[in-house]
């Protein structure tokens, strides 16, 4: 997603290495995705579902 839009930054974080961050975002299972500190996505999703959730797009998009 970052490669497709210069406004997007994507960080892949090893959860056990950065325990403070994992605690901050309540990472109890992986993968867990946090977008702009507000959106939380648990687990892996199909491509369109993931992007829709990450960008907070309505179901009808």
């Amino acid at each position: 997603m970052a490669a497709a839009n210069p406004l997007i930054t994507a960080d892949a974080i090893e959860a056990t290495e950065f325990m403070d961050l994992s605690r901050k975002y309540r990472v109890t299972g992986v993968p867990k995705t946090i977008v702009n500190e507000t959106i939380e996505i648990m687990g892996g999703l199909p491509e369109q579902d993931f992007v829709r959730a990450a960008l907070n797009l309505p179901e009808t998009t």
Binding site: M1, A2, A3, A4, N5, L7, I8, T9, A10, D11, A12, I13, E14, A15, T16, L21, S22, Y25, V27, V30, P31, K32, T33, I34, V35, N36, E37, E47, Q48, V51, R52, A54, L55, L57, T61
Partner: peptide, 27 residues
């Protein structure tokens, strides 16, 4: 090359505000 479906790509390219994605995983 970005391996995404055209529709998904269009959604991503339509983003107009800074967006920070953090993905937590384990080895």
């Amino acid at each position: 090359n970005i391996d995404l479906e055209p529709e998904t790509m269009a959604w991503i390219q339509a983003v107009t505000t800074p967006t920070h994605i953090q993905v937590f995983s384990t080895p």
